[in-house]
Design a binder for these strands. Structure first.
Lengths: 167, 167
DNA sequence: GCGGAATAGATGAGTCTTCAACTACGCTCG
DNA sequence: CGAGCGTAGTTGAAGACTCATCTATTCCGC
């Protein structure tokens, strides 16, 4: 009777036939996953932002840069690692540049390319933020789960990643 | 050597002592979860938006309204169900009002309150969108998982929800 | 029933994301 | 070489989210 995600099969008015609606169990699994994912991402982002002034999106950029030789990376590679669009990354790097945490540098191998380079200030900001972030992840994720659940989480994530592609 | 999420213990320059960094297994579990969650949410939102013009955030509002008696709900209750801030919901409902899918109505019991009411056009839009969304969820989630993984997903979600609270 | 605190919601400025151009460079092939 | 095409990245406008602030109403205690 409701136009739910799970509009019951034969729900009056649901014109589209051939849709395999979610059964009650799938519905509950999906809802639980969705809500917990949204709440967890939101919580981690908020705690990090309020404690350090660095959003999770920016944090990921800094982390990715810090992990490379020379603390620099091509813009598009950085975008891929951060699951970000090129445009978004470009805007974000501009903001990080204003903070003095990253600078741009023309790529030697390819005149079209730009390298994003993590500055010392940027590295310092990351070092200050990392403990806060790890503490949040522990508190809200690992401390809540048994080792079996952690294993299941990893398995689930890797399974979905194979489909959604690192691409 | 890198200022990773998992700055190794004793990493030179990582001044903050007392942080329990993530070990390699935790790191992989966390990364797999994070990436898969981001990719999945992004994919579902994109497919829904491109096929129907309704973002996942708007879709959730419409679904919540459609599930109630009279297809109406107090703004704050709606915000809670959609894991949305009040401000965000208020802005979103304004947009949905412009589309003619929702209207506002003063709450009879409480002069401060507003009821968001799903219109017939809104319900029709939801009915058109629901099959698209369910198909995406099937394709990118349930079709990728064994029954055991679905059960694990539900368990994980519910465990985290107990901590993150429906509150 | 009145004054103050609390609640419901709206609003505007600032920030972030998206999308569709747009610039600039490299690559290929005639 | 140089025309055309593909790739790298930037930009600006429009939509969406956050935060602080503001108004209106209710609730509470006297």
């Amino acid at each position: 009777m409701t136009a739910d995600v799970s509009l019951a099969p034969g729900d009056p008015g649901s014109g589209a036939e051939g849709t395999r609606w979610l059964d009650a169990g799938e519905q509950q699994a999906w809802r639980a996953w969705l809500y917990s994912a949204q709440l967890l991402l939101d919580r981690l982002d908020r705690e990090l932002t309020h404690a350090t002034g660095i959003s999770h999106a920016y944090y990921e950029i800094l982390v990715a840069l810090s992990e490379t030789e020379g603390r620099m990376m091509r813009m598009s590679e950085l975008a891929d690692r951060c699951l970000s669009s090129r445009s978004r990354l470009s805007h974000a790097v501009s903001r990080l540049e204003e903070r003095g945490w990253v600078r741009r540098q023309v790529c030697p191998d390819d005149g079209r390319g730009q390298l994003a380079v993590l500055t010392d200030d940027g590295f310092a900001a990351l070092e200050a933020a990392a403990p806060v972030h790890v503490a949040s992840v522990r508190t809200h994720l690992f401390d809540q789960l048994s080792p079996e659940q952690v294993a299941a989480m990893r398995d689930l994530g890797e399974t979905l990643l194979r489909h959604l592609g690192p691409r």
